[in-house]
Design a protein around this nucleic acid. Sequence first.
RNA 1: GCGCCUGUAGCUCAGCUGGAUAGAGCAACGGACUACGAAUCCGUAGGUCGCAGGUUCGAAUCCUGCCAGGCGUGCCA
Length: 654
Amino acid sequence: MFFDYREKIGRFITKNVKNIFSVDLEKVVVTSPPQVKFGEYSSTFPFQLAKILKRSPLQIGEEFVNGIDLSQSEISNFVIKVENIKGYVNFHLKRSIFFRELLNTLLADNKKISGPWDTSLKVIVEHTNINPNKAAHVGHLRNAILGDTLVRLLKKMGFNVEVQNYIDNTGVQVADIVVGLKYLKGMGVKEVKELSQMEKFDYFCWDLYTEVGKFYEKKKENLELRRNTLREIESGKGELYEISEMVSSSIVRCHLKTMKRLGIGYDLLPRESDILHLKFWERAFNLLREKRTIEYENEGENRGCWVFKYLNRGKEDTKIIVRSNGTVTYTGKDIAYQMWKFGKLGVDFYYKKFSTEDGFVWMTTSHKDEGEREHPTFGNGDIVFNVIDVRQGYTQNIVYEALKKLGYKREYENSVHFSYEMVALSPKCAVDLGFKLSEEDKGKNFVEVSGRKGLGVKADDLIDKLLERALEEVKNRDVKPDEMRDTAIKIAVGALRYYMLKYTKNSMIIFDMEDALSFEGETGPYLQYSVVRAKNILRKYMDEYQLDEEDLYDIFRKSVFSEISMEDDIWELLWEFIRLDEMVYNSYKKREISILAKGLFSISQKFSAFYSKYRILKRENKREREELLSFVYIFLKIMEFYLWILGIPIVDRM
RNA sequence: GCGCCUGUAGCUCAGCUGGAUAGAGCAACGGACUACGAAUCCGUAGGUCGCAGGUUCGAAUCCUGCCAGGCGUGCCA
C-alpha cells in the first residue's frame, strides 16, 4: 500500500509542471530526503527545468509551490504541505494518519507485505548444498543463512516457496571418505554402519578427510583407489556403494541437525545419485541435441566432445558438456537439474521420507517401490534462485545460457544466481585455531577456508562457543533460571545470523572470532535487546496500572496522536517502520539481504535513543503517556514481524 | 590475455534512482545508572571517498584511462 505514494507524487508533479510551465517532464525522480524535516518525499525537478526555462531552480520551485492546488489533487488525502527549499520541492505527509493506520493494522494482527509483484508464482530456492562428507563450516553457514533468509523474505512477500538442499552423494568428496574408511581404517559395511551412528560422525569425517588428502599426496597410485571407488558408487551396487550411502545419509543428518539449530529447514533433498539413475542427463542430452543447443566436434582440440557454444559479450565461448570418453561434466548435470526445476525435463523423481531427529524431510529416490504414493508436487517452479558462491558464476551463467538457447527464454530470465563472496579466515584466527601458516600466508590479510586441509571453523563449534558466551552473560542478568538456556540459544542464533547478514554479498567476510562472538554494537543481540526493552515497558506499565492485555489494546485503540508523537525524532522512526516494506522489496529486487538487516539495525538504534530520551512510565500527562506507549507497541510488533525474516529470535528478557 | 568483483575514518564495513552537512560499529578519549535494568545512551577526536581526467547546475555514486588486491576462466571432480 505504501508503494504508490511515490508514483502518485510523481504524477502530481508531471501534471502540474505541464500546467504551470507548459513543459513535459520526461522522467520525474521522487526521492526521500536525508532528514524528515525536509519532508518524506522530495523532487529535484527544478534543477532539470532551470536550463530549459533559463531561471534559477529556486524561482521555479517557488512558482511551482504557488501554482499548485493541493486540496483538489489526488495526493491531498496524505500530503499536508508542499514546500520549496533551495530548489528542492519537498512533500510533507499527514503524520497522524499514518500513525493511526499502522497501529490499527498491527492491532488487528493483519500486517502483510504487498506490492508490485505476482504472488501466484512458485519460487524455488536452492541453498546449503554441502558435500555430505564432513562437518559444515562457517562458509556453509553464510550460504545457509543467506538462503534461509531469502526464503523467509519471499514467504513474507506472499510467494509460494520451495526450498531445496542438493545432496551431491556421488562425488569425489564422498568417495574420499569411503577410501579412508575402507583402506585407511580397514572397515567394511558392518563397521561403518556402527561408526556412522556415533555422535559427531561429521567431526570424525572432517579429520579423516584430511588424512585421505595426505594419503593421496604420499603416493600418486593411491588416487587409483579413488577412481575405482567413484565408479562403484556411481554404479549403485557393491560394498563401496553401500558404505557411501551410509556415510552420506549420516552426514546429511548431521548437517540438518546443525542447520535446525539456526532455524533452517528444507522441503526437499534432491540427490545427485537419483539424477544419475533416473537418467535425467540422457533426457536433457536428447533435448539439447535435437534443438542443436550443443554440437559434436569432429576436429580441433575438443575433438570427440559435445560442446556448448554461446556468445559471451560478443565473443564466442566454448564449453565442453560431454567429454570425448562419453562422460558428462558437472555443467551438463546442472543443466538437466535446472530444467527439472522449471518442469521442462518431462521426467520426475520418486520421493521418500528421510527421517530426522524430529520427523522427516522429503528426499528423492530412484526406486519406484521406495517412493511414497502421496507426496507434494516438487519442482515446476516459475522462478529459481540458486544460492551459490561467486566462484561458480561462470558455470551458472552457462547453465542459464543453455536454457536460453534451448528456447526457454522466460526460464532464462527467471534463473537467478544468488551469489555471494566467500568466507575466509584472518591469519590470526587460523593461528588461534592451531594451524601452522606459511610466511606467505601470514602476510596476507586472509586465508581461504579449505575442507581438504581441515582449515576452517566448524559450524557447530562456533554455535557452541556463542552459546557458552551467551550463557555466561545471561547468568548475570534478569533471566529466570529455567529460561536461561533457551534465552542463551536465541541470543547465540541472533548473533550468528546477523553477523552473516550484515555484510553485502559482494563483501568477503574475513572471519574474526572476536567480532563474531560480540554481543555489543552492531550485532543481533543489540536488535534483540531493543525489543526486550519495549517488552519491559509494556510489562511494567501493565503491572503498575493493573491492566491485562485487552485493557492495553483498548488504550491503543482510543489513543490520539498529538504533538508529542509528532516530534521529528519519533516520526522519523515511525516513517522508517512504514518504509520497511519498500526495503523488503529493495532487498528482493537488488538481491541484497543486508539492506533489510541494516535497516532493522538503524531502527533499533533510533529506538534505543528514544528509550533513553522519553521516560514513559514516569510521565505525568496520561494522554502523552499512552501515546508514547502505543508507539512502543508499534515498535515491538514491527520488530517481531521483520526479525522473523532475518531469523533472529525474539527474547522475553535479557 | 579475457571476464567478474573490490578499493570510503586506525580496523571492519554502510552509503538507495547522481542531490541537501559522506555515515555506523569496533578501538581511543570524556561523560551518564539506588534503574521503563548500562548487551545501553550522550559527547569528543578521526575522511585528498585508490590516482588522473571527463560528463553534469551538482559525482563516493555515471564514463574513460591508470594503480593495487581478490576470484573465475580445466575433457580435474
